[in-house]
């Protein structure tokens, strides 16, 4: 009984925060609402016996990603979203898509009625950090490696995207730096020789 009550509490919180995120035109309010969704989902993960995923959800989503988003919002000093003026058909498109997806959702809801209604045995405990780590470094080693390479690519890509100079400007800076170093080397070489 308490499980159902907790589910409806956090599900309601998540849906309310999600709607608030789409509703607000100020991006900062949207970001704060999104943090609410992440925290509600993290609580749901705890009720689903997945404490590791719940902790990682808070750390990565509410911690890292949202801090990045809020930093960018403040850095760019964004104004409120302008209202749609000439794009009225987008409202119709969005409403149609929403109705379609909701219909699919409730179709799924009825289709899974015959699926297991009781959670699997607690002793299996798929949410334990130990079992996740074992699976990660034995059976799923290759996907983990690929994700590592992907993160490296993201780091390099974001550094290149966020730089201020264009390619010819960078070449100029590098040439200047090389000349300065040559002069310094010449001086040092003299000093050592003497």
């Amino acid at each position: 009984m308490i499980g159902t009550a907790l589910f409806f509490l956090f599900a309601g919180l998540a849906i309310a925060c999600a709607i608030s995120m789409v509703y607000h035109r100020n991006p900062l309010y949207s970001a704060i609402s999104l943090v609410g969704v992440f925290i509600a989902l993290s609580c749901l993960y705890v009720t689903l016996a997945a404490p590791f995923i719940a902790a990682v959800q808070i750390l990565i989503y509410a911690g890292a990603i949202m801090v990045l988003v809020v930093f960018v919002i403040m850095l760019l000093n964004l104004e409120e979203d302008r209202p749609h003026s000439r794009l009225n058909y987008l409202y119709a498109l969005g409403g149609g898509l929403g109705v379609l997806l909701l219909a699919q959702t409730f179709f799924i809801f009825y289709a899974v009625m015959r699926s297991p209604n009781q959670p699997a045995d607690q002793t299996l405990s798929p949410g334990k950090t130990l079992s996740i780590g074992q699976a990660m470094y034995t059976e799923y080693l290759l996907p983990v490696e690929i994700v590592g390479v992907l993160l490296l690519m993201a780091v390099i890509g974001s550094v290149i995207l966020a730089r201020k100079l264009t390619a010819p400007q960078i070449e100029l800076v590098v040439e200047k730096e090389l000349e300065i170093r040559k002069e310094e080397d010449a001086k040092d070489g003299l000093g050592i020789a003497l």
Binding site: G3, T105, F109
Partner: peptide
């Protein structure tokens, strides 16, 4: 506990 379907419905709504 809530059924699997209720979690899937919440996920679909989000």
């Amino acid at each position: 506990e809530p059924s699997l379907g209720s979690y899937l419905a919440l996920s679909g709504i989000l």
